[in-house]
Simulated assay, not measured.
Amino acid sequence: MTDIIKANQKLLTYNKLPPCKGPKLHAFRDSKAPITFIELLERPGVATSSVQGYVFKVSIKSRVYALKVFKFYKPSDGKQHLSKMREELVTEELAVFHCDPFYAECRAYGRIDELKKKGIIKEKTAADCYGFLRINSEDERKIAQMGVSLWDLPKEDEYRRKAEGSPVRAIVKEYIEGTTIFGLRNCRRMLKNLRLLNEHGILLRDIKEDNYKAGVLIDFGSAWTEPHAIMDAVPREVAEDWRGADMQMFDDMLGDHGLHSRLRALPNIRYQKMLRSWKRSKPS
């Protein structure tokens, strides 16, 4: 057993993750209870290679949940937004804890929990999250039998050779039925909630229709929650452009539904500036 596998096993014994400064998510209280897999919830039009994990409709102790099972993440991928010169400013460990989609969700939901306790979040903004858990070996086999692969890396990749056999991570969320109504009133509420998250350091970085369910956010796998190592390692103006990306993407989504003439997240001039900036900074 490699050191990487041992370290990953140890991490999933913690009561809260990730083990670094900043917000954390608690372990799911019924993590030892049997999981009944009802169905794999696939998003139409999304390529398998581009997803960060797979969401299942499950039952645990007779209650239905959405269980997001995460793919394995290569530590060096966390630094893809940095120049070679700036990469050394961020350790691989911190890059993982801040950028791995599993830990990204843990940090975002940890901050949301903080905001709820302080009374800052007063209405439903995101699907409720009930904690993280480790998938046991029997359930790993069930997932594999459903045709799900949790590795995007080739088998000969050095990191995969050292890390394969690590425990599978998952987050338990509220299961939400229904679609989002893109009417003016609902979109105003969605925009208000998104601005609130941004104001408190949660940058979604992936605002699109698929990441909403019944008007609330369901996916934080791309989120950067401040303080964030990558944002701290770049010039201030670059970080500021990144902070505005959610509003630009929300405007794109409004445009897709013909609402631009009635509602905007950004003033028109600011939107055009953000659109050019975001396209330049977005990895190819």
Rank of each mutant, 00 (worst) to 15 (best):
M1W: 15
K6F: 08
K6A: 09
K10C: 09
L11F: 00
T13Q: 11
P18W: 07
K21F: 07
A27H: 14
A27N: 08
S31D: 09
E39A: 15
L41H: 13
L41Y: 05
V46F: 06
V55F: 01
K57Q: 09
I60P: 00
I60L: 00
Y65I: 07
F70Q: 02
F72D: 11
F72K: 07
Y73P: 00
P75S: 12
G78F: 08
S83T: 09
K84I: 13
K84P: 13
A95S: 09
V96K: 07
F97D: 06
D100W: 03
A104Q: 15
A104T: 15
E105V: 01
A108V: 03
R111D: 02
R111N: 05
I112F: 07
K116I: 14
K117F: 06
G119M: 00
E123I: 08
D128H: 14
G131W: 11
L133W: 03
I135C: 06
D139R: 15
K142L: 08
A144Q: 15
G147R: 05
S149P: 15
L150C: 04
D152I: 15
D152Q: 14
E158R: 13
E158L: 13
Y159P: 00
K162W: 15
V168L: 02
I171T: 02
I171V: 08
V172M: 04
E174V: 04
Y175G: 04
I176W: 12
E177G: 06
G178S: 03
I181A: 11
G183N: 06
L184N: 12
R185M: 10
N186A: 04
C187N: 05
C187S: 14
R188D: 08
L197P: 15
E199W: 03
H200S: 14
L203P: 01
L204K: 05
L204M: 11
D206V: 12
E209V: 10
L217A: 04
D219K: 06
A223G: 08
W224R: 07
T225N: 00
E226C: 10
P227S: 02
P227L: 01
I230Q: 05
R236A: 07
E237C: 06
E237I: 11
V238R: 04
W242R: 03
G244H: 05
A245R: 14
Q248L: 14
F250S: 00
D251R: 04
D252M: 12
M253Y: 12
G255F: 01
L259K: 09
R264W: 00
N268T: 12
R270I: 06
R270A: 08
Q272F: 09
R280C: 11
